[in-house]
Design a protein around this nucleic acid. Sequence first.
DNA 1: CGCGGGCTTGACTCACTTCAAGTTGTGTGG
DNA 2: CCACACAACTTGAAGTGAGTCAAGCCCGCG
Lengths: 242, 242
Amino acid sequence: MDSCLIAKLSHYVNLTDADRTLLSSLEKEEQQVWAGEEVSGHGDLSKQLHVVKSGWLYHYTILPDGRRHIVRIHHPGDVLGLADIAYRHATNSLRSATNACICPFPKSALDSVFSQAPRLTALLFTLAVRDQVVLIDYLRATGRMSGRERVAFFLLDVLSRLRVTDHTIGDTFQLPLNQTDIGDTIGLTSVYVSKTMSQLHQSGFIDYQREKIRIRNESALAKLSDFKDRYANMDTSWFPER
Amino acid sequence: MDSCLIAKLSHYVNLTDADRTLLSSLEKEEQQVWAGEEVSGHGDLSKQLHVVKSGWLYHYTILPDGRRHIVRIHHPGDVLGLADIAYRHATNSLRSATNACICPFPKSALDSVFSQAPRLTALLFTLAVRDQVVLIDYLRATGRMSGRERVAFFLLDVLSRLRVTDHTIGDTFQLPLNQTDIGDTIGLTSVYVSKTMSQLHQSGFIDYQREKIRIRNESALAKLSDFKDRYANMDTSWFPER
DNA sequence: CGCGGGCTTGACTCACTTCAAGTTGTGTGG
DNA sequence: CCACACAACTTGAAGTGAGTCAAGCCCGCG
């Protein structure tokens, strides 16, 4: 019943009742999607954004020769498609990794947020910009780090994101992505991801089997991959009063 | 006398007089910086944003072992630091590539934009989001493309950005960055950038000497690197009326 | 019980790095 | 106007991290 969008945003600021009403209007409509299903393709008209209610999804692109790069992974409570509001056609494709439930809403719903709720606007802006900072972290990892460092970085990134909504999470989590997906996210092949993960296991950093990952030495991994948590804290002090 | 910020934004929407007044308040203060000078460092308190009046700058990060990645290159008319408004401390460092003139303004100036000018808010949002799409293009290039493709991509990206403000630009432009800088932007070493550029020259794609680049076969380069211009057109149709 | 997707492992290859020794061009001082 | 210094670029030889190819394994599922 509870909206995970509101839950996620409340993590960062206090929302007024008016804000909550406005936000829940974004979650009116629901859509079920299957694991592996394509939600929207590159080049589609991008008139809609989505809020994720449950499940994991990801945005990706295909290169002309067929190689794939996964751009961003999405969890419950995420607002998807902000990256596409600047263009008439979607610049990336969206696919569901698991069975999922998403709530589509039109781009134009944002204009009522912008004109009615400056504080919420600032928050959305901040979230978009946080995504940008995370993308930069990925860019730097992909551009300048070894495979081992990149895998470490990736696992910690997923873990930190899960912690935003699930405070009870310890060192173990479910990762509903296969090693090909992981490789396509950090610019490696699935073969090399496999070799790297087994090496990280042998060095005592992680345990894993199927979709379950256990981080055995988080601080060492963080040091290895120079990881900074971008999700836990954000600066909202400059926000307009209401 | 003319503001290049206003010039750049006018490329996308019609601005009211009120909008112009608000915008020019962001360019009240001026600061001169020298080529190679550090403007703000990673970890500094990030209370200020900047508008670039003249010159080239770039944001970069250093890895623990000293390797560098250049995250984003900035030109006149760009708004810098949007990526940092979500955090109390700067997540990346800013350095000037050439002598430059920049206009600092406080984060809090954004809140007056958000509460007074919904249309301008939408525009700023769109710009932030366009940067995100470009970062994604870089991420995909860095993660999945060969050195040759990456260099081609980089050169076309710079050219397209210059064209936003300079419509007279043909196939030749000034690139005030050395090959180490280029390599640090696309995840290569300076040695390999040199070899790749001379190879691109020999295949008839480009000419270059010192800081001058000539693109001899733009469409072939675009095909080679699967380049899409993200700067020329953006969707502003969903913007609030005023 | 057999099929198939995902994971592992090893042998081989190659794109890119590293190292190192030139070359070029440009600004500076005598 | 020359000489010297210096940064940027070039070029080649040698090394390596990650890719490719391919065979085999594991395990959940029909």
